[in-house]
Design a protein around this nucleic acid. Structure first.
Length: 499
RNA sequence: GGGUCGAUAGCUCAACGGUAGAGCAGCGUCCUUUUAAGUCGUUGGUUCUGGGUUCGAAUCCCAGUCGACCCA
């Protein structure tokens, strides 16, 4: 039957193609359309009643990730969605005298990586592992390529990102980290919905890429004969919905920025933005604190996490530090009159802190360089930095006592910006003025249609954004944004391993 | 964009100027409660690509591709 040539036994793809031909020649379909699964692996295991072997029938399916061939019986482990837990893949036990000679012979031809379905009864092995004693099994999908090594897994970072499916199968930490992201996002939705927030979707293709200062991607719509930008922010459309009377609104969506790729930056990334009419940045403080504390409690099961970069413990419980931006700058520069200094004096001050500053920068950019390089990385515990200079964001309300600063905060945790929040600007005249006053790297594109919406009246509101990727880096202890995105952006390459 | 480091069997890694090896996987055998199962045997390489140096290059040099890290 087998026409494997001796020369080919090292070529695992060729060996498996030959097995495939054999199956087809024998009239078996190696790629089935469906299988009746009674339980996912973890749920199946829970059905076992202690001391009552072979009393409960289950039907499970998954990928073969372990084969222990004992001659006339085999222990095999099947990997499915629930295999990420402590218990790992579910074990099945196939005995020749249970399934019969013919079925057993075909079972022996299965390979690591094949996907099968199995029906049988639950029992506990000598060593105490709940296992399915198989009465019947069926090959559901033949794997023509081998799995990575069973003990060391897959460690080549390039292959981990390009063939994430392999990483997910063999590297438990990767799988748990990425599944944690799903639980985080799910929790955020439930938290906000419980507070009467409504989830919406707004355009990704935009005429004006507004709401932030960043280089957008451009694309082209053929039928309209016009160029579009991919959005860089969710903000301006969600505020239009505030005008439209959707008072508590949020979106979790992908933004695109045509900028560098690094451990902290992927060209497409996910933002949560939340707007609450009749609230303000103080209300957002309460909201984001409650959100993160409930995330810790319900998803992580702890209020303390280890900060991957510094090794320090971050404590989310209790009250969080609140400190004005200007105070931090004055403390760090040791200059109580920093904001009264001339530009040359600020340049000298920044250089005294070992910072390189471009003389072409605006004064607020020099000051902000001190903030982002010398202050932000040191803020490990959750810290609300409040009242940023007005030049840093045109979309927030100016503070009443000090019109040089904004009624905003930036929540810093683990040295990373996690959540900015504003008392949102709803004065259309002032909004236009602030857009036009923007300079340097903070300059935004002006969306006149958005101003028109404001002219119809937007209720006072608090707004808040969270970078979901960064939040996941923080909460999962990941080192890189690539570790919390299934398919991070890489340079394209011809298909690896193609025949 | 600049700098540093890396790419060897399907996977994880050796070999560091002198015959490219190991473990796992694969192939063939033994074994009906294994836990990285065990056992005996065995196949497997465009050493990322292209140049160069050398009697001889996986190894040294140059250029490129892809990736990681740091910086801008």
């Amino acid at each position: 039957m087998s026409d494997l040539s001796i020369d080919n036994t090292h070529d695992q793809h060729a060996v498996r193609m030959a097995k495939l031909d054999e199956l087809r020649a024998a009239g078996r379909d190696p790629f089935r359309a469906s299988f009746a699964v009674s339980h996912l692996s973890g749920d199946a295991r829970k059905l076992y009643v202690d001391g009552q072997d072979n009393a409960v029938n289950v039907s499970v399916a998954g990928r073969i990730v372990v084969i222990r061939d004992m001659g006339k019986s085999q222990f095999v482990k099947l990997f499915d969605q629930q295999s990420g837990s402590e218990a790992g893949p579910i074990q099945i036990y196939v005995k020749k005298d249970v399934v019969g000679d013919e079925a057993y012979a075909s079972f022996k031809k299965l390979d690591l990586g094949d996907i099968i379905g199995a029906e049988g009864t639950l029992f506990k092995t000598k060593t105490g592992e709940i296992t399915v004693r198989v009465d019947r099994f069926v090959l559901l999908a033949k794997a023509l390529r081998p799995l990575p090594e069973k003990w060391h897994g897959l460690s080549d970072p390039e292959q981990v990102y390009r063939q994430r499916y392999l990483d997910l199968i063999v590297n438990r930490e990767s799988r748990e980290r990425l599944l944690l992201r799903s639980r985080i996002v799910s929790h955020i939705r439930r938290f906000l919905e419980a507070r009467q927030f409504i989830e919406v979707e707004t355009p990704v293709l935009q005429n004006v890429a507004g709401g932030a200062a960043a280089r957008p991607f451009t694309t082209h719509h053929n039928a309209l004969g016009m160029d579009f930008f991919l959005r860089i922010s969710l903000e301006l459309y969600l505020k239009r919905l505030l005008v439209g009377g959707i008072d508590r609104v949020f979106e979790i969506g992908r933004n695109f920025r045509n900028e560098g790729i690094s451990r902290r930056h992927n060209p497409e990334f996910t933002m949560l933005e939340v707007y609450q009419a009749y609230s303000d940045f103080r209300g957002m403080m309460e909201l984001v604190k409650a959100l993160l504390q409930s995330l810790c409690a319900d998803v992580l099961g702890t209020s303390k996490i280890r900060h991957a970069a510094s090794g320090l413990e971050i404590d989310f419980s209790g009250d969080w530090r609140e400190v004005p931006y200007k105070q931090l700058i004055r403390e760090t520069t040791g200059d109580a009159d920093w904001f009264e200094r001339t530009k040359d004096q600020k340049i000298a001050g920044a250089e005294a802190l070992d910072l390189k500053v471009d003389p072409k920068w605006e004064e607020f950019e020099i000051t902000n360089e001190i903030f982002s390089k010398k202050i932000e990385p040191t803020l490990i515990q959750p810290t609300f930095v409040t009242h940023l200079p007005k030049e840093l964001c045109p979309l927030a309300k100016l503070n009443h006592e000090d019109p040089g600063v904004l009624d905003v905060f930036e929540l810093i945790i683990g040295g990373m910006e996690i959540a900015p929040a504003y008392s949102e600007q709803n004065d259309p005249i002032e909004q236009r003025r602030m857009f036009e006053a923007q300079a340097g790297e903070e300059k935004q594109n002006i969306d006149h249609d958005f101003i028109l919406a404001l002219e119809h009246g937007m209720p006072p509101a608090g707004g808040m954004g969270i970078g979901i990727d960064r939040l996941c880096i923080l909460l999962s202890g990941a080192e890189s944004i690539r570790d919390v995105i299934y398919f991070p952006q890489l340079r394209t390459q011809s298909a690896a391993g193609a025949p």
